[in-house]
Nucleic acid binder design. Structure first.
Lengths: 196, 196, 196, 196
DNA sequence: TATGAATGAGTCTTCATTCAT
DNA sequence: GATGAATGAAGACTCATTCAT
């Protein structure tokens, strides 16, 4: 593997292991098995390195989301949302530390904010994509017509977001079966509603 | 106001303004208009100060949650959940930086984890309280009997959590009306379900 | 006991327990069960307090030394030196931390140096008193006439000084019997000489 | 000279000039003409730096002591002890501040104690080496057979130890001739004994 | 006299970044 | 491109001393 990728992987690993505030260039270099100086041959700064780490994490999630418009009218709505929920859980699990860092390092956030707005790539973007998909399904009559589809997206992705957060807080790894159950239950509730 | 409270307020303000990693004892002291040394007359360490800030933030939220068991069978379920959602939005808005900090400073998280577990006070605790409330309503027949009530709690609080997160990310303050609409829409969706 | 004495005792205890660099006014006040402010009602400064602690420690030792001139020609020389050696071991044991502090805090040493010279009370003073005593015994024919009596004093007190130092280094308390043996052996060697 | 050595020398100089408690990383860096940060590129901590300073000081002394076993039966006993006494005076003179520091900073002492015991390198070790040498001479009949040789070592090295201590206290440098006389007189007394 | 909160100068240590080799 | 020693700014925390009560 090329040094640049070794550095990216090392950074991701160190961040997830040590937390952001204990992620030092020294430690990243140690894990990547190179010198601290080398970091600066491949990335402009520590922040630049972080940005590339985040972009990498975002990939898989976006891939699923970008498939969503094509799903409308195919399979069941539940199956389509299940796919989204799983991708979201994966992504939130992977990126939660970096995400949290936005509020810990506000300058970083401010700079990213601009950039995100320009590219229309913020974290709320995924909720919009799901909203648009649900709107399309609504037009096809596969979703309750009275619903604010944005709210459904917020409920589903919010539940996944907070779930990932809680798991991280507890420091636990969730078995595959437990996650499956979580998604199933949440979708069940979301599909049929709270009222009797 | 007593110095101790001035320090607590200053810390909260600085954290929200500068972010955690830029929150220095020097700046807190400057805002509290006292010396850095004085911080240590009232709190054992910076971390200890943070803990007290967090406890303060938790107060209002817990107050609402602890009222919840008494609400069962009274008013409408929607009204009761509305109250919860508003308190949650307030709390998440207020505390999101500190909450995020848990993942930035893993030692802090590790220590809090123990403490939280002992006192059964973790962030997931609020979801449990709502779950129990919904279970009670279920027994009264005011909630769909087929539902996993935990999932409903996760959906509602998750949506609020992520909403607060997105607002913070955008750096925007949400007008009262917008928040009201958000809660209304989310509850609508949650109550009636996604399916036609 | 009066507060002033409580403070003196507390200071001595803390110094011997924690070492000088960990001896804080806060800890002294804690042990003396009074406020930090009270320290300054009875002593001008921390240094002033230390000086009074040292003076207290010096008492017993000086008492023995001042009896020495009167001992000349009485009992045996060995018995008289034994008494000196025991007093020296006691004093060095008690005061070694404070003594060491002179080199750790050179300003303190510089100020004490002046004062000691004025009063002729330096640590070398005890060697002189023993020297004078031995000179008197020499004149009485009870001590080898060819000897430099100062050297004898240096050997005896030096051995005691270093012995106390080694014990402190090892962190051991010496049983009564062991100390007795140490003094006996040292005097034996000193009295009869190294050569066959 | 390499920076590492410049730092070691600077530390030694500052310690001897300012005393330990006034030896700051800032001042060491100033004298070594480098940044404070550089100290930590070469030594793990201030304490680690101190340890290396002490090890350097110990070198010359140990070299002489390790030659001692080979001296038995050669030259005169007096000459051999003279060599030891001079090396001891040099070493004690050089290291007395650091030695004193052990009692000022008890944590430091505690850690060194372990290490010293493991390597059998404590300050009392030199007395043992001299003791063993004298035992060998005793067997050769060059030393009084009735003597406890450990006591002779304690007397000689104790006198040197305290002498160095007194000189440091007085802040005086001893002329070469004076030191020679001191050693001569002490050995004289030690060789022939106190009794007529 | 006794208090103890307030002080502020001073300490060790960390860390992202640079640059000569 | 790779290195790693050097940097220096910044941070959390300590502590003897003061002073209003």
């Amino acid at each position: 593997m090329e040094l640049r990728d070794r550095i990216l992987n090392a950074a991701e690993q160190v961040i997830r292991t040590n937390g952001l505030s204990k992620t030092t260039t020294k430690e990243i270099a140690r894990i990547a098995d190179c010198s601290e100086g080398s970091l600066y041959n491949h990335f402009q700064s520590k922040e630049d390195l972080y940005i590339h780490v985040m972009k990498g994490q975002l990939q898989g999630y976006l891939a699923v989301l970008f498939k969503l418009p094509g799903r409308k009218g195919t399979r069941t709505v539940k199956e389509n949302l299940e796919e989204v929920a799983n991708a979201a859980l994966d992504y939130f699990h992977l990126s939660i530390v970096m995400t949290a860092s936005m509020f810990t390092e506000p300058n970083f956030l401010a700079r990213r904010r601009q950039e995100f707005e320009q590219r229309n790539e913020g974290p709320h973007r995924s909720n919009e994509i799901v909203t648009v998909y649900l709107l399309a399904e609504q037009k096809l009559g596969r979703v309750n017509a009275d619903l604010n589809t944005r709210s459904v997206a917020d409920l589903l992705l919010g539940a996944c977001f907070q779930h990932a957060f809680h798991l991280q807080f507890l420091g636990e790894d969730e078995p595959e079966a437990a996650r499956k159950q979580f998604v199933e239950n949440v979708l069940q509730a979301l599909l049929h509603g709270l009222l009797p």
